[in-house]
Amino acid sequence: MAVTFTLNGERRTVESAEGTPLLYVLTDELALQGPRFGCGLGQCGSCSVLVNGVERRSCQTPVSAVTGRSVTTLEGLPAWYAAQKKLARPPALHPVQQALIDEQAVQCGYCANGLIVKAAELLARTPRPTDAQIVQAMNGHLCRCGSYPRVLRAIRRAAAAIQVTA
């Protein structure tokens, strides 16, 4: 079954068996390293991507469901951010990515994909989130290494950085 969608700004057509979750198409056929397998059950957020700007669990999204839609992965976040902010060219990293480095926030970093995608979605909609809003948005994303306090600081920092850019 052929499915055509936009991936990080480029039109792509893939051939996949009916019902194949988007995650396997992204990781195997398109060789992306952002979205990653964590549970395959929608419980952890490791596989998160943006579909038309909304965070989705790619392990629970059949590839056919993104037909004609725009999928943004971790790799595409700087350009996605640049388009939102009408920047001439994409930054090297999305402000959330940069803030995670500045706060040395993650350990193994396996959770980082989902955390960053979710936080990017949050800040696009709610540029000045309260702590409670951050926690509520992030609560469906698990981290095994205990990075939550630093990630919270990083998201605050990213929000502040975006204010300055704007």
Binding site: Q33, L74, V106, C108
Partner: peptide, 27 residues
């Protein structure tokens, strides 16, 4: 000094074991 592994990890450029592939490989 800052950890040397984080830039790739947050940028999606860090290849975890889960990303390892070999030619001719089966799943």
């Amino acid at each position: 000094p800052a950890r040397t592994d984080l830039t790739d990890k947050v940028g999606g450029r860090h290849a975890y074991t889960q990303h390892a592939r070999l030619p001719g490989m089966l799943h």
